[in-house]
Design a protein around this nucleic acid. Structure first.
Length: 399
DNA sequence: AGGTATTCACATGAAACTATTCTCTGAGTTAGG
DNA sequence: TAACTCAGAGAATAGTTTCATGTGAATACCTGT
């Protein structure tokens, strides 16, 4: 009944935010701080495109949140503006290879590029792969032009399939008569190129750049600049920005995390009607981000994976670490009881490895000598979190 | 005692299988002329 | 006769199974002292 009041209040009280979009990861700033040199270098490498010559292929490394994507997008944007003004036939294409069910296979990657060229009716499946290549060729090769193909998170592409895709991509140019394609790969795995086919390696990374992490001071400046536009003046208590950037600098200078942290802290402060963002808000925000991340990954897991996790949760109060075999036994028992089909131990082994990758569990392979070799699994969550996850799984599997 | 050889309990890899989704094709069907 | 329907063939893809091979070190076994 005081719902109305609530909404009245909600509208009346002013938010700490003026423009939250500045703190979202989709935001592209006017100016990329501390990346001037690198941007200049990339610009040098890509500039020939403006004269409709094929630039060198480029490979960009750097950890998450070091501004790789941002810088590339920034450059592509200004290049396409100039190109539009002077009518230069350049086509920048940005594709994130990580996106599930969008561009994480060869077929879908090409299909996605074709979509970028404006042909939207590409079937999601059903065509042979070379057919889709043919569509692509006929679409691109209609006129003389330079395609700047940016492949973000390119390592995801090779992880699933081999490096054959990349080989095909580097080979495309020889199939084209008029158009030229420059490949720009972005990867946050610094050793990515090392286990690649040498032919691919040499042709893909004609040029290489490494994005170093930001240091704490730089992150502070970045935060301050974003915060300036995003929040009302004086919405942030002194020390908050400093602490926020210290958090991020501790984690290899991830600017994106710092910005997320600040935004969530702002949201929390807003929700409890506080007039300022304080350091406790920041701490809460860190917890919230962490817990949201875990809850998110757990809920998005397939049923069988959840079942395995459930088995681990059942085991966890008993003793410290447990082994694959024990987990499998419990898993099989629970599955049978809930009338799910029981997967092989081979599969469970892979699922456990996946969980390890996701950071949901800690697993390491140990040898118990005479008593075999196995994964030693432990769960690094506090009891609260465990309970929460257990409930989530029970609900989603209806156990 | 010191040195090998075994052995366990899985890990890891490769290939094949299953099920689902989607296109394309051509045969058969239908409705209108 | 043109338009429509529908089954079947072929692809891509995700998830899984089957089969095969690999593996680190605690034990068992041996050997010479």
């Amino acid at each position: 009944m005081d719902m109305n009041n609530f909404f009245e209040n909600y509208l009346e009280r002013d938010s700490l935010f003026i423009n939250k979009s500045l703190l979202l990861s989709s935001y592209l700033p006017e100016e990329v701080l501390f990346r001037g040199d690198l941007i200049q270098e990339i610009a040098n490498i890509l500039a020939p495109a403006l004269r409709v010559e094929k630039p060198s292929n480029l490979f960009v490394y750097g950890k998450t949140g070091t501004g790789k994507t941002l810088s590339l997008k920034y450059i592509l944007k200004s290049m396409s503006e100039i190109a539009k003004k002077r009518d230069i036939p350049i086509k920048p294409v940005y594709i994130n290879c990580k996106l599930k069910r969008v561009a994480d296979t060869e077929y879908r990657l090409i299909a996605q590029i074709i979509k970028e060229f404006g042909k939207t009716d590409v079937p999601a499946t059903g065509l042979p792969t070379d057919e889709i290549y043919n569509i692509f060729y006929s679409l691109v090769d209609t006129k003389k032009q330079v395609v700047l193909l940016v492949l973000d998170e390119i390592d995801q592409l090779t992880k699933k399939m081999g490096d054959g895709i990349l080989y095909n991509l580097t080979r495309i140019n020889s199939e084209l008569k008029n158009a030229q394609i420059a490949l720009i790969g972005i990867s946050n795995n610094l050793v990515f190129a090392e286990n690649l086919d040498p032919r691919v390696q040499s042709s893909l990374s004609e040029e290489e750049l490494i994005f170093p992490p930001y240091n704490a001071v730089q992150i502070q400046d970045i935060l301050r600049k974003r915060a300036q536009g995003a929040f009302r003046p004086d919405a942030i208590e002194p020390g908050v920005i400093e602490k926020c950037s210290a958090y991020a600098a501790r984690e290899h200078g991830d600017a994106r995390r710092a910005i997320d942290l600040l935004r969530v802290a702002g949201e929390l402060a807003d929700r409890e009607n506080s007039s300022k963002i304080t350091i406790p808000h920041l701490d809460d925000a860190e917890d919230k981000i962490e817990s949201d991340k875990i809850v998110g990954t757990v809920t998005s897991q397939p049923k069988q994976h959840q079942m395995v996790l459930y088995a681990i949760l059942l085991l966890t109060p008993s003793k410290r670490p447990f082994f694959t075999g024990e987990i499998y036994d419990v898993y099989a028992k629970v599955c049978k009881k809930a009338h799910y089909n029981v997967l092989t131990q081979r599969r469970i082994s892979d699922i456990l490895a996946e969980f390890d990758m996701l950071g949901i569990i800690n697993a390491k392979i140990i040898s118990k000598g005479r008593y075999g070799r196995t994964r030693e699994v432990s769960l690094s969550l506090d009891d609260d979190m465990k309970r929460k996850i257990k409930e989530i799984i029970e609900k989603s599997l209806q156990i």
